[in-house]
Design a protein around this nucleic acid. Structure first.
Lengths: 249, 249
DNA sequence: AGGAGTCTGTTTCCCAGCGAACAGAAAAAG
DNA sequence: CTTTTTCTGTTCGCTGGGAAACAGACTCCT
């Protein structure tokens, strides 16, 4: 799916956009739009979940940490997904830390209200499970990427994934944060970013990275980007066709 | 949960053991016991799923590969779990390769029969989703482990996880395979194993590794082992108490 | 405007582990 | 028993990137 096609969903969250009107209506009172920045907390691991979140232009990340304080991102969530799935099963405790990586809008729904949606079998339920399985692929591929690929490759992948989920070509983030996302040190990231800029693929400014030549970045990214993207594309296209089958549209 | 307590489930698969009698009965005709060895194929990524598998003494692994042929395990499945979850959602295509890592017994059920279980909300369905979320934790922690931990730490973790899932203290596997599991080269594994043997924690024989001092191995393993194990323990204990609550037992 | 705080570019040292290669030992095949 | 195959132990050079440190640049605050 092209970035252009993706933009179709940028004014709304893909999952919410699939909800039948009656389900939307019942959630409406507990639903609110919010603008989130990296300072805002989404979930802290092992703490109670108050809201489930459906990003629109914001990008969230699942973060895993070690007791030594090392951090690495194990998954990203943008307009195509949501966080708070455990709520579906009646778990109120977040298994991972989730942070805002790129500022933007989200829709959030109070957890206890959202959970009621799962008291019967529904379209949204099936959709969310499918989403979760897709996220599983993302996680597995991140595993591979972390094991075998260089800082350059991992960073390239991350930038492309972020670019897919943000509005426009500018990513508002520092090199420090970027390094944290891919589990590398800042100096390594700084050098690699410098090379990309010399090659004209990106522009670096303080606290901001602008993607200039996305196509070339895709060429030089590791296969992990493609694998993950295909999984998400499949999730979206698959669901659309199943809905079309349902409604005869 | 102690290894001793775990052994309680070794004669049966934990998930199957939770099934109410009527569900067992309806699955019975499609269910069969089989002995699997590492030569047997479970799933190949992107191919059709014929059976879902519930290991008993066998240990299976989800394997991710790169196009260059590098391989790394992204998850293990033993007596506590199952493979074939996508079937629950009507996906018939395996997202990952799954292999037999340690030979042993499994129960398998023809996929199309198993799927019927999911046409209505049931206990087993909730159980399986919970299992899948636990597997998610395992995957995320593997991500961290792959990024930050040494060959020695990763190998230690793997040996402990395998030990939790096998019958007895002997693991029937070559160093080559072990290296593949943790995404390292055999020489590195060979050296680390040699050190463990010198320290008296294991015994190495051709094609076989015997765990001699499990407690000491746990001490020297990275925290990833503990995190994953706690997630699985929680899965099992949580479900048991919810069932007890249900049945008043 | 000036100073504090934050972000970025770069350098130096160092090592875990990859890649490659080979020899010996155990098992399997004949 | 001999040959072949499959494992295991070990060695060595090389490199990506971690750890630490510092200077310069930008931003924001007062």
């Amino acid at each position: 799916m092209s970035k252009a096609r993706r933009l179709h969903y940028l004014n709304k969250n893909f999952i919410l956009a699939q909800l039948p009107p009656d389900e939307i209506e019942s959630l409406q009172p507990a639903m609110q739009m919010a603008r989130m920045t990296p300072e805002d907390l989404i979930f802290r691991a092992n703490e109670r979940v108050e809201y489930v979140y459906f990003p629109i232009t914001a990008m969230l990340s699942w973060i895993a940490t070690t007791s030594e304080g090392e951090r690495v991102e194990v998954g990203v969530v943008g307009w195509e997904g949501m966080v708070g799935v455990p709520e579906m099963l009646g778990y109120s405790i977040a298994p991972f830390t989730v942070e805002v990586e790129l500022p933007g809008d989200v829709v959030r729904i109070r957890a206890e209200v959202f959970r009621r949606t799962f008291e019967r079998v529904s379209l949204i339920q099936n959709l969310l499970f499918r989403y979760y399985f897709t996220a599983h692929t993302q996680l597995a591929q991140s595993c591979v990427c972390n094991r075998f690929h260089t800082v350059e490759e991992r960073m390239n992948r991350w930038l492309l994934m972020a670019h897919d989920r943000c509005d426009g070509d500018e990513l508002a983030l520092t090199q420090e944060i970027l390094a944290g996302m891919i589990g590398a040190r800042r100096p390594a990231v700084s050098i690699v970013l410098g090379n990309l800029q010399k090659a004209g693929l990106i522009r670096i400014e303080r606290g901001r990275i602008t993607i200039l030549q996305r196509e070339k970045m895709e060429e030089s990214a590791c296969e992990c980007y493609r694998v993950i993207r295909e999984a998400f594309d499949h999730f979206i296209e698959d669901y659309q066709s199943s809905v079309n089958g349902f409604h005869g549209a």
